[in-house]
Computed example of a mutant assay.
Amino acid sequence: MTNTPSLFHRPALAIRLANQVLVVSAGSAASSGVFLAAPRRTGKSTFIREDLRPALLAQGAVVVYADLWANPTAEPGSVIVNAIRAALASNEGVMLRLAKSVGMDKLQLGAMSFDMDRIGLGSDVSLSEALVALSDETGKVIVLVIDEAQHAITSEAGIAALFALKAARDELNSSSHHGLRVVCTGSNRDKLAMLRNSKDQAFFGAPMVNFPVLGREYIDWFCEKVNLPFALDPEQIWPIFIEAGHRPELLGAAADLIRFDFEVDAETGPQLFISHVRHLAAEMNQVLLSVIHSLTPIQSAVLRVMAACEPEYAPFEAATLEKYRQALMRAGIPEAEAKADIPGVQQALIALQDKKLVWRAARGVYAVEEKNIVDLLKAEGLIEQN
C-alpha cells in the first residue's frame, strides 16, 4: 500500500491548454497573457501543479511557478521575484551570464557566489534582463504561472512586478528571443479582471477564460478509488458534488468521517456519506454566516451594498453613501440614527478586510473576498438591490 495520495489527472485538458499557451496564432492576444478563473477549492491549483506544469515541460518550456496564496502574508511582489530567482539559480550558465552582466569575471566567480539579491525590482539586474538571460541560455519558451494572481495588485511592489513582467514579455516575445508567456489564475473573476480590463494595467486585453470545474469523470474516478467498506454509486454522488459546489475536499472529508466510523455498514453507508457531504457544506456556510451576522450595522450595510454593486462599487460616492443609509434603515435602524459618513465607511471597510470578507487592491478598489459570500447573502435575503 502506498502512502502517496492518489490524484485525479486531466491530461487532455492540460495538453490542450498548454498548446493554447505556447502556440500563438495570428491575431491572438494570448502572448499578452492568459487568465484562468475558477472558484477556490475546486481543484485549480492541483491541476496547475500536477497536470499543466508537466504538459508545458513536455513541450519544451521552462516553467516558473509563483503561488501568491501559499503564504497570504508574504509580499506578492517578493513571491514573484523569488520564484524567478529560484529558476535562475538552477541554471549555471544563466548565473554566469548574469554575473558577467554586473562586471564579475570568471576569477571572481570562482572565489565568491553571485548574490541573488542583485536580481529584482530596482536591483542591478532587472526581471527583464534576468528572464532574457534564461531565455537565451536555454533556447526555450518561458512560461510564468502566477496562482491567485489578483493578490499582486494588493501592494505597490506587486503592481511593479507585473509591469516588470510586461516589459520582459514585450522583449522576450520579439524575434531576438524565444518567448515569455504569463498564465494568471484566480478564484474571483472580477478581481482577476482588474489585471487586464483597463489600459493602465500590465496585461490589458489578455484573454480571460473560465477554468473548467471537475466533471463527471472525476466522480467516476472518486467512486472507484475511495476505498470505503461499501461501493458508492456515481449516479448518486454526481448531483451531490454539484450541490457542494464541485469542491473535492468535501467528498474527501466525508470519506474520512466514514473511515473512522467503525459501526457503519454497507446498507446505510452510501446515504450516510451523502449526509456527511451536505452537513460539511452547510457547516462551512454556517461559519461564514456567523461572521456575517456578527457585523455591526454599518459593516453589514457596507458589505451588502458592495455585493449588490460589484463590479461598479464606488465606496465613497454620494449615491453609495445614500445606499448605505437606506440599508441601515431596512435593517431596523431609525432614520435619525441611520448615518453613513466617509470616516465610518472607511472604518467598516478595514474591519471587513480583517474579517476576510472584503479584499482591497493597492489603489483603493474594493471587492467581496469570495463569490460564495455574495451567494450566501442572496440566499439569506440580505443583499441590497440597486
Rank of each mutant, 00 (worst) to 15 (best):
Leu257Pro: 01
Arg259Leu: 12
Leu127Lys: 07
Asn372Asp: 15
Gln20Trp: 11
Ile80His: 00
Ala83Trp: 04
Val365Arg: 08
Ala266Arg: 13
Lys225Thr: 08
Leu377Tyr: 02
Val62Met: 14
Glu322Gln: 10
Ser32Phe: 12
Leu214Lys: 06
Ala362Thr: 15
Leu321Ala: 01
Ala66Trp: 11
Leu57His: 05
Arg40Ser: 11
Gln201Phe: 05
Val302Lys: 07
Arg363Ile: 10
Glu384Gln: 11
Pro315Cys: 05
Thr138Cys: 09
Lys44Cys: 07
Asn173Asp: 08
Thr4Ile: 12
Ile373Phe: 01
Glu263Gly: 13
Gly269Lys: 00
Met95Asp: 01
Ala74Tyr: 02
Thr268Pro: 02
Asp170Val: 11
Ala130Ser: 04
Gly332Val: 08
Lys378Asp: 12
Pro311Tyr: 12
Glu267Val: 10
Pro72Trp: 00
Lys199Cys: 13
Phe273Lys: 03
Asp67Asn: 12
Val79Lys: 01
His279Ala: 11
Gly93His: 09
Pro72Ala: 05
Leu121Arg: 03
Ile237Tyr: 05
Gln20Tyr: 11
Pro234Arg: 04
Glu243Asn: 13
Thr268Phe: 10
Glu322Thr: 11
Pro207Leu: 06
Ala331Arg: 14
Leu382Phe: 06
Ser300Val: 05
Pro76Trp: 02
Asp375Val: 13
Gln271Leu: 10
Glu224Lys: 15
Ala130Thr: 10
Ala74Cys: 03
Ile292Lys: 02
Met112Ala: 14
Leu214Arg: 04
Pro343Arg: 06
His178Tyr: 14
Leu56Ser: 00
Lys225Arg: 15
Pro5Val: 03
Ala361Phe: 12
Glu263Leu: 15
Ser32Val: 10
Asn91Gln: 13
Ala130Gln: 04
Tyr324Ser: 01
His151Met: 08
Arg363Trp: 13
Ala160Leu: 04
Ala308Glu: 03
Pro334Lys: 09
Glu148Ser: 05
Thr73Pro: 00
Ile153Cys: 15
Ala244Phe: 15
Gln347Leu: 10
Asp124His: 07
Ser6Arg: 10
Ile274Thr: 07
Glu267Lys: 12
Arg325Glu: 14
Phe262Arg: 15
Thr42Tyr: 06
Ser28Gly: 03
Arg189Thr: 06
Ser32Thr: 14
Asp233Glu: 15
Gly27Glu: 10
Ala318His: 07
Ala37Pro: 01
Asn3Arg: 10
Leu172Asn: 00
Val368His: 00
Thr73Met: 08
Asn71Cys: 00
Val143Asp: 01
Val182Phe: 00
Gln271Pro: 02
Val264Leu: 15
Ile383Pro: 00
Phe230His: 06
Val365Ser: 02
Gly77Tyr: 01
Leu134Arg: 00
Ala86Gln: 14
Ser31His: 08
Arg97Val: 14
Ala89Ser: 09
Glu317Cys: 14
Phe262His: 11
Val34Arg: 02
Val182His: 01
Leu272Pro: 01
Leu192Gln: 05
Ile240His: 08
Ala160Met: 05
Glu235Gly: 09
Phe114Cys: 06
Arg49Glu: 03
Asp256His: 10
Asn173Gln: 04
Leu232Val: 08
Ser90Asn: 05
Ala157Pro: 00
Met284Phe: 08
Lys378Pro: 03
Ile333Glu: 07
Asn227Arg: 07
